[in-house]
Write a protein that binds this DNA or RNA. Structure first.
Lengths: 128, 128
DNA sequence: ATATATATTGACGTTAACGTAAGGATATAG
DNA sequence: CTATATCCTTACGTTAACGTCAATATATAT
C-alpha cells in the first residue's frame, strides 16, 4: 500500500540491500527517513526514492551522479536560471543514456552471435 | 589502417585514457601488448580489445566482469564442458544487459518528461 | 657526446562504496 | 522487571580503479 512503513532492516530486505547501505546513503544525503526516537522509519516515498537510486546503480551511475540525477526530479523550477541548469542536466543524462543504449545493443548482438555459435557447436558434439 | 602501431601514450590519447590505465589493465591481464626492448607497442588488435573494455566500462561493468566477458570471446570451444560454461556466461550477461536496457528506457522516458516540462515552463517565463 | 624529453617500474596515495566490529540505547518477550 | 534481541552511532577496515611521484632506463635533438 501507499501508506506502508518500514524499519531500516525491513526496507533493506525488500530492496535486497543491507541496512548499512541505507544508512550510508543517508549520510550521502540521498535519502532522509523520518525518525521515531532515533529509529529510522521509511515511508512509501523513501522506498520509491531508493528504487530510483538502485536503478541508477544498475545503469552504472555513481552515487554522486545519482544525486545530481535525483535533483533533476526534485528541482523546484521557479527561476529561469534554475530551469536552464535543469535542462542542461537532463540533456546530458539523456545523451549519456543513449550512448549506453548503443553500447548495450552492440554487446548484446555480439553475445547472441556467440550464443548461436556455441549451441551449434554443442549440437555437433552431443548429437542428442 | 589495420597495421597501425601505437606507443602507450599514443593509444592512450586516441582512446581518451591515461597511459597509467593501459599499464594497469596489463597487470590485470586484460591486455598484453608486444614489447620492443621494454617499451610497449600496441597493434590494431590491442586497440580493438581496449575499445571493448571501455565499452564494458560505459555499460557499468567492473574490470573483473569485463575480463570474464572477454574470455567469452577468447574461449576456444573445443570441449563440451567449456562450451556449456561459455553458454552460461553468455546467458547471464544477456539477461543482465536486458535488465539494463529496461532501466535505461524507463529513465529516459522520465527524463524526457522533465525535459518537456522545463521547456514549457521556460516558454511561460520568457515569452520570446 | 651531452642535454632534454619520454617511457618504465615500483611504491605509496586516493576516492568510492560499502563491510565489520565495538559499545551504548531501546524495544520486546517472558 | 530483567534478559535478549534489535537498532543506533562511531570508527576503523577493505576493494576497485586508478593518480602521483621517485628513481632508472632509453630515445631524440643538437
Amino acid at each position: 500500500m501507499k501508506d506502508t512503513l518500514y524499519t531500516a532492516t525491513e526496507l533493506a530486505d525488500v530492496l535486497g540491500v543491507s541496512a548499512r547501505t541505507l544508512r550510508f546513503y543517508e549520510t550521502k544525503k540521498l535519502i532522509d527517513p523520518r525518525r521515531v526516537g532515533n529509529r529510522r522509519i521509511y515511508n512509501y516515498k523513501d522506498s520509491a526514492r531508493m528504487k530510483l537510486i538502485l536503478r541508477g546503480k544498475r545503469i552504472g551511475f555513481s552515487l554522486d551522479e545519482i544525486k545530481q540525477f535525483l535533483d533533476l526530479y526534485d528541482a523546484d523550477p521557479t527561476q529561469v536560471e534554475q530551469l536552464k541548469l535543469l535542462q542542461d542536466g537532463v540533456n546530458q543524462r539523456i545523451s549519456q543514456l543513449n550512448q549506453q543504449k548503443k553500447d548495450i545493443s552492440q554487446t548484446l548482438s555480439e553475445l547472441k552471435a556467440i550464443q548461436l555459435a556455441t549451441s551449434e557447436a554443442l549440437k555437433q558434439k552431443t548429437p542428442n
